[in-house]
Design a protein around this nucleic acid. Structure first.
Length: 256
DNA sequence: ATGGCTACGATCCGTAGA
């Protein structure tokens, strides 16, 4: 059984690549971020033809999350994690007893900015929500673009990035507070190549220089961690023409 | 050097991403 996450940076633009990747990687579940589509424009029929049911929570131009699954999805819930938040960043659903949470965590723009404050408040809301999800669903996976590189080894040039947004102390503390609920970073359950990243800037040939960050993660509760057999970043879609700036992350489990 | 791409919705540039 495979769970995956991919920030596609516009589902409309990336749908052909998504179809190719679904056929090649064959995940049972795929969480998408930055769909940038209103729900009325979500390509539900096209995805069903590829063998996936879907749940979505989107908006025009910005943000937007979705969960694709080969099985029936139940208890689908979108949520605002801070008061009066219009941004579509959180979607949860259950399939075969596994609770899946798809998140597109805020970027934060710059340390100390209004958006940075929003990012930290959003993470506090996420922590509360995940505590409740974990209490209700022991088998929980949280997949998405967290917009935090948890450790220096998740950053191509830690010195250049020191103190910047995505690596600042408060952001990393907010990310670690999620693990403190009883979640583990599936990627770090296994030995990994050095300089493993999931995002590379479009500019300055960053991908070719492997100048990236590991900001897309799959967090799993203890029962799922015990059944997790592999976790990897698939760089192949990043090599395509007109790629997303993010690569998918995929985790394998010994059973549903 | 504070830039560089890409997507979007609205023009022929501004906002946002990370």
């Amino acid at each position: 059984m495979k769970l995956a996450t991919w920030n596609v940076n516009s589902l409309k633009v990336r749908l052909p690549q998504l179809a190719t990747w679904l056929a090649a990687a064959a995940p049972d579940v795929l969480c998408l971020q930055e769909t940038k589509l209103e729900d009325a424009k979500f390509p539900r029929t096209e995805l069903e033809a590829l063998g996936y049911r879907s749940a979505c929570s989107g908006q025009k131009t910005y943000n937007g999350v979705a969960i694709l699954c080969r099985e029936d999805l139940s208890a689908v819930e979108n949520a605002s994690l801070v008061p009066a938040d219009e941004q579509k960043r959180f979607l949860a659903a259950t399939a075969r007893g596994i609770r899946m949470v798809c998140v597109y965590c805020p970027n934060g723009q710059a340390v100390g900015s209004d958006k940075y404050g929003y990012k930290l408040r959003w993470f506090a809301g996420l922590r509360e929500r995940l505590a409740a999800e974990l209490a209700a669903h022991p088998r929980l996976a949280v997949l998405g673009d967290f917009n935090v590189a948890p450790e220096d080894r998740d950053v191509h040039d830690p010195k250049a990035w020191e103190g910047q947004v995505h690596v600042s102390g408060p952001e990393r503390a907010a990310w670690r507070a999620l693990l403190a609920l009883g979640l583990q970073d599936a990627f770090r359950l296994f030995p990994q190549p050095e300089k493993s990243f999931s995002w590379w800037d479009y500019r300055s040939m960053a991908f070719r220089r492997n100048a990236g960050l590991r900001i897309d993660q799959i967090l799993v509760s203890a029962p799922l961690a015990a059944q997790c057999t592999a976790c990897a970043i698939d760089k192949e879609p990043r090599r395509a023409e007109r790629p997303s700036d993010h690569a998918p992350v995929i985790a394998e489990f010994s059973r549903w």
